[in-house]
Computed example of a mutant assay.
Amino acid sequence: MRRPRDTTGLALYDATARAAAATVISRYSTSFGVASRLLGPRVRPHVHAVYALVRVADEIVDGPAHEAGMPASEQVRELDAFEARTLAAIGSGFSADLIVHAFALTARECGIGEQLIRPFFASMRTDITVAEHDAASHERYVYGSAEVVGLMCLQAFLNAGSARAVAAPPDLAEGARRLGAAFQNVNFLRDAGFDRETLGRDYLALGAHDEATPAEAGRTRAAVLESIDADLAAAAAIIPRLPADSRRAVTAAHDLFAELNARLRRTPPGSGRVRVPDPVKAALLARAAVGATPRAPHPDERSGRTA
Rank of each mutant, 00 (worst) to 15 (best):
E211T: 12
V276N: 05
M152E: 02
Y141D: 02
L172R: 09
A307L: 14
R295I: 14
L264S: 07
N187D: 15
V149H: 01
A165D: 03
V166S: 09
T126H: 00
A208F: 03
A35D: 00
A104P: 07
R219L: 13
E216R: 12
V186C: 12
G270E: 02
E139Q: 07
D202K: 00
L242K: 07
A96R: 14
D14S: 04
H101S: 06
L154Q: 00
F94C: 15
Q115E: 13
Y143Q: 03
L256E: 05
F257Y: 14
P240W: 07
F157C: 05
A215D: 14
S36P: 01
R164H: 06
R273K: 10
P240L: 07
A182T: 13
Y143M: 07
P170R: 09
V142Q: 06
R108A: 10
G113K: 00
V148C: 10
A235I: 15
N187F: 06
Q184G: 04
E211W: 06
A89M: 09
G304Y: 15
V50Y: 10
P71D: 06
G304L: 11
A107S: 01
V166Y: 06
P299Y: 09
V290K: 09
E114H: 12
E109Y: 03
P41Y: 00
A215K: 08
S26K: 15
R37G: 11
L87E: 12
E226N: 13
V50I: 12
I128H: 01
T251N: 11
V130E: 00
P297M: 04
V24I: 13
A182F: 07
G207F: 11
L151G: 04
Q155W: 06
H48W: 01
V76I: 12
T23C: 14
D278R: 15
A19L: 14
L260Y: 01
A165C: 07
P214C: 05
V34W: 05
L10R: 08
A286D: 06
A212Y: 07
R5G: 15
H209W: 04
A35V: 02
A289S: 07
A288D: 07
P279D: 05
I25H: 01
V186N: 03
R287E: 11
R77Y: 07
Y141C: 00
L79W: 03
I117R: 00
R37V: 05
A233L: 14
A252I: 09
R287Q: 13
I117A: 01
T251R: 08
A212L: 06
A84E: 03
A223F: 04
A57H: 06
A233G: 11
G304D: 15
G270C: 08
T306I: 15
T106W: 10
R287Y: 04
D255F: 10
G161Y: 04
T106E: 05
D171H: 13
L199Q: 01
R201Q: 01
R108I: 10
G111M: 09
G180S: 12
R305F: 15
I60W: 02
R37E: 04
G200Q: 07
I60K: 03
P169I: 11
A258H: 03
R140K: 12
V280P: 03
D14F: 09
R305P: 11
A296I: 08
A35H: 00
V24F: 01
L172I: 10
D97Y: 02
